[in-house]
Design a protein around this nucleic acid. Structure first.
Length: 418
RNA sequence: GUGGGCGUAGCUCAGCUGGUAGAGCACUCGGUUGUGGUCCGAGAUGUCGCGGGUUCGAGCCCCGUCGUUCACCCCA
């Protein structure tokens, strides 16, 4: 009887050995600056009440209208697999009353996110992000620090071919004024129906169109930055000066568009040059109305999400991944069935002393077992037979040069440490 | 959701104008007693993505389908 194979669901990105090692390294590098800046872990559910995203991310966004994995659970509740991280963090902060303590609340998260899009290079239906949120303080210095933390994550990976683009989306008032003028401008353009519809939902979208004729037409469109209130403009100027002071280089992109509705004020994006169409490796910004919309206090917040999958692709493209295979310190081979229990025991003992120890399994020939030891990359190999078992000695063979020495088990630690 | 490329061994790929499947790497075993890397020898592995059609005959041609990949859209 032969069973059919079951394949992974379409578009999921999974990491198997040896690649998983690089993935884990990348994730660690990306988030370590946040940990050192006092951000604390938040472990959240991967599914939430659907209305959290409808309200938080925005009904007009593509993410909500056509990319969410939404289903009904057995209790008839509408559930959605999280498409992004910020809304869930805010929900948990409100629910856990973290905003009733000292501000800003500083948290980080790491995990998988879900969007039902057509898969493509760097775009998956289940993908990985790490991110941080700093909630409750509206200080341009905090904006700058958040951006610098993200930047440091990419620097940790050794990346060079990326750039940081920043802009200010202003406050609600500046946006409303701009929207009126932009709508007027766009309505005069000759657009196909799909683009027209999109522009009516969010006219800023048209700035993001890649077609040359549209780009050309948008050259003279009214720019949001020209509509910023005094407060917003001043805030943005300060963010820039702090970034300058931090030595974080950036370019101001007055036409930047973000796909999530909650962004206000400082908004930023990290773009990598070697990645093809899906070039955004991270992004974030301030979201001053979000907490209130979700039923909490009217507190401001700022955060970012970094794409672990894409950061890994970028590190591969720039060839910055360190070679770091797992190499055990000791590989133990039992010569016969009689030594198995003894060897298992010995391995546990040496592990307790803090060393990485592997055991040969499967009753292969000694030659085969040695081959396995060689491929494992172990520094030392010990073959245990009757004489070793009786004497309590171990003959350690150093694989790099083939020499071997006989030691007492009690002296093992000293040799392995050398 | 729309469009293009590609599906042959675990991996990378050959396979002529249609004549019923191959290489390299990897893997396992062996090259006399309890010691790896190199070398030599042997071995295992495929419903040629799947379904249909054309044909005496299809891995090769045609249609469909699924998967994958790239781009649009969108974004991490």
């Amino acid at each position: 009887m032969k069973f059919e194979k079951i394949a992974a669901p379409k578009g999921v990105r999974e990491y198997l050995p040896p690649e998983s090692q690089a993935f884990e390294w990348v994730r660690q590098q990306l988030i370590s600056p946040a940990k050192r800046a006092g951000y604390q872990l938040m472990e959240l559910p991967v599914f939430e009440d659907t209305s959290l995203f409808n309200r938080g991310v925005g009904e007009s966004t593509d993410v909500v209208t056509k990319e969410m994995y939404t289903f009904e659970d057995r209790g008839g509740r509408s559930i959605t697999l999280r498409p992004e991280g910020t809304a869930g963090v805010m929900r948990a902060v409100i629910e856990g009353n973290l905003d009733r303590g000292q501000l800003p609340v500083k948290v980080w998260y790491s995990g998988q996110f879900f969007r039902a899009e057509r898969p493509q290079a760097g775009r998956y239906r289940q993908f990985y992000q790490v991110g941080i949120e700093a909630i409750g303080i509206d200080d341009p210095a905090l904006d700058a620090e958040v951006i610098a933390i993200a930047d440091q994550g990419f620097k940790n990976l050794g990346l060079k071919n990326y750039r940081l683009e920043i802009t200010s989306l202003g406050d609600a008032q500046s946006r409303a004024a701009h929207r009126v003028d932009l709508m007027k401008f766009v309505s005069k353009l000759d657009l196909d129906e799909a683009t027209r519809t999109r522009s009516e939902i969010n006219p800023l979208r048209i700035f993001d169109d890649k077609r040359p004729e549209i780009k050309e037409a948008m050259q003279s469109a009214p720019i949001l930055m020209d509509y910023l209130s005094d407060y917003s403009r001043d805030h943005f100027e300060k963010v820039k000066s702090y970034l300058d002071a931090l030595g974080v280089s950036y370019t101001v992109n007055k036409r930047m568009v973000r796909g999530l509705d909650y962004y206000t004020g400082t908004t930023f994006e990290f773009v990598h040059d070697d990645l093809g169409a899906q070039s955004g490796i991270g992004g974030g910004g301030r979201y001053d109305g979000l907490m209130e919309v979700l039923g909490g206090q009217a507190l401001s917040g700022i955060g970012f999400g970094l794409g672990v999958d894409r950061a890994l692709l970028a590190a591969i493209a720039e060839n910055t991944l360190p070679v770091q295979d797992f190499n055990s310190d000791l590989f133990i081979i039992p010569l016969s069935l009689d030594e198995k229990a003894y060897v298992l025991n010995l391995a546990q003992e040496v592990r307790r002393a803090g060393f990485a120890v592997e055991v040969a399994f499967g009753d292969r020939s000694l030659k085969g077992a040695m081959k396995g030891a060689d491929k494992s990359g172990a520094r030392f190999v010990a073959v245990i037979g009757e004489s070793e078992r009786e004497s309590g000695d171990v003959e350690l063979k150093r694989m790099s040069d083939g020499t071997s020495i006989r030691v007492k088990i009690s002296e093992l630690q000293k040799v392995l440490e050398a």
